[in-house]
Amino acid sequence: MMESSVSVCPVPSEQLPINEYQELKDSWYFSWGTLDWATYIKKMAWVWGWSWLLAGPVASASFAPQKALGQFILCGAGLSTLLMGLAMLRLYLGWTYVRDRLADTTVVYEESGWYDGQCWTKPPEILTRDRLIATYEIQPILGRLRRTFGLLVLFLCIGGFIWILL
């Protein structure tokens, strides 16, 4: 029965929310949200470490490591954390977009270009399937990303407190 509903669906295959979800899940970057905790933490640490390539020179230009080592480390760590926050924001926005497309009762799509937008109402069985995926697959990913954002803010606050003490 599901096959018959999908076969009469006018939405191009690449614009179906279920296919957008699968693409996101299979992509190199967005799949990080689906990894187990240990691998996820390693990826985030990797991003934070590599962001020091940009943050280190900026921090050293602001605070000479020979004279103000504490400020240099805190500035570099803060900038790296902000850069990591931008990477996390991109992950969050991508997953939120697909979750919203899955949970919506209609699919907005384009047949050949931006000027011919159409709307298709999902049949009940497809809507149920999509909402189950949004709830049980994507919501945990978004929760993990929100917790990571919370930790980043906590680290920035701790760094700011330490900065005041220096």
Rank of each mutant, 00 (worst) to 15 (best):
M2Y: 12
S4T: 11
C9D: 15
C9H: 11
P10R: 08
S13P: 04
E14P: 10
L16N: 08
L16P: 02
P17D: 09
P17W: 10
P17A: 13
I18Y: 06
E23D: 14
E23W: 10
E23N: 09
L24P: 04
S27C: 06
Y29C: 04
G33T: 01
L35R: 05
D36R: 08
D36T: 01
A38Y: 03
T39S: 10
Y40W: 09
K42Q: 09
K43V: 10
A45T: 07
A45E: 13
A45F: 04
G49R: 05
W50K: 02
L54E: 04
A55M: 03
G56Q: 09
P57Y: 05
S62H: 08
Q66I: 12
A68K: 13
A68V: 05
L69M: 13
G70K: 03
F72S: 06
F72A: 14
I73A: 11
G76V: 02
S80P: 09
T81Y: 00
T81K: 01
T81W: 00
L83M: 15
L83C: 12
L83S: 14
L83T: 00
L86P: 00
M88G: 08
M88L: 15
L89V: 00
L91P: 00
Y92L: 08
L93A: 06
G94W: 07
T96F: 03
T96C: 08
L102A: 11
A103C: 03
D104N: 11
T105C: 04
Y109C: 10
Y109W: 13
E110K: 03
W114A: 07
D116P: 04
W120H: 08
T121C: 02
T121D: 08
T121H: 11
P123C: 15
L127D: 13
R131H: 13
R131D: 12
I133C: 06
I133S: 04
I133P: 04
A134C: 11
I138K: 08
I138P: 05
I138R: 09
Q139H: 10
L142V: 12
R144K: 15
L145D: 01
L145I: 15
R146K: 04
R146C: 01
R147V: 13
R147W: 04
R147I: 05
G150C: 14
L151C: 10
V153P: 03
V153N: 03
F155H: 02
G159Y: 00
G160C: 14
G160I: 05
F161C: 05
I162V: 12
L166E: 12
L166S: 09
